[in-house]
Amino acid sequence: MLDDRARMEAAKKEKVEQILAEFQLQEEDLKKVMRRMQKEMDRGLRLETHEEASVKMLPTYVRSTPEGSEVGDFLSLDLGGTNFRVMLVKVGEGEEGQWSVKTKHQMYSIPEDAMTGTAEMLFDYISECISDFLDKHQMKHKKLPLGFTFSFPVRHEDIDKGILLNWTKGFKASGAEGNNVVGLLRDAIKRRGDFEMDVVAMVNDTVATMISCYYEDHQCEVGMIVGTGCNACYMEEMQNVELVEGDEGRMCVNTEWGAFGDSGELDEFLLEYDRLVDESSANPGQQLYEKLIGGKYMGELVRLVLLRLVDENLLFHGEASEQLRTRGAFETRFVSQVESDTGDRKQIYNILSTLGLRPSTTDCDIVRRACESVSTRAAHMCSAGLAGVINRMRESRSEDVMRITVGVDGSVYKLHPSFKERFHASVRRLTPSCEITFIESEEGSGRGAALVSAVACKKACMLGQ
Rank of each mutant, 00 (worst) to 15 (best):
L451H: 13
G97W: 06
Y61L: 07
I293E: 08
H105C: 08
I211D: 00
G147T: 11
T82R: 13
E440Y: 11
F269Q: 04
C233A: 00
K420F: 13
K346Q: 09
V182G: 12
D311P: 15
L304P: 00
I366A: 04
G328Y: 11
R85I: 10
M393S: 14
E112M: 04
K458D: 12
E245A: 01
D365H: 06
L75D: 00
E157T: 15
Q26F: 04
C129D: 04
S383T: 13
A10N: 15
I189F: 06
G407L: 02
T82P: 12
S453Y: 10
L357E: 06
S76I: 02
L314R: 03
A320C: 14
P432C: 12
R192L: 07
V207I: 10
L309Q: 00
T168D: 14
A6R: 11
N283T: 15
K296S: 10
D274G: 02
L309G: 00
M121R: 12
L355I: 03
N283M: 15
E14C: 10
K459M: 15
A232R: 00
D187T: 13
S396F: 09
S76F: 03
P66N: 05
N231R: 08
M115P: 07
F269W: 04
A425E: 08
R403A: 09
L77S: 05
K291W: 07
G223Q: 00
S383Q: 01
I439P: 02
D274I: 02
I404P: 05
K142V: 09
R392S: 08
L463D: 14
C364E: 05
A232M: 02
L122F: 15
E51S: 14
G328T: 15
C252T: 10
L79C: 06
V86R: 00
I436T: 15
A454P: 08
E67D: 14
E322K: 07
R377D: 00
G162P: 08
A201S: 09
R308E: 03
S100E: 10
V427S: 09
I293S: 13
K15V: 15
T326K: 09
M87P: 00
R369L: 07
F269N: 11
S280F: 13
N166K: 09
R428I: 12
D3C: 08
E435G: 07
G388C: 10
L430S: 07
L304H: 10
H416A: 13
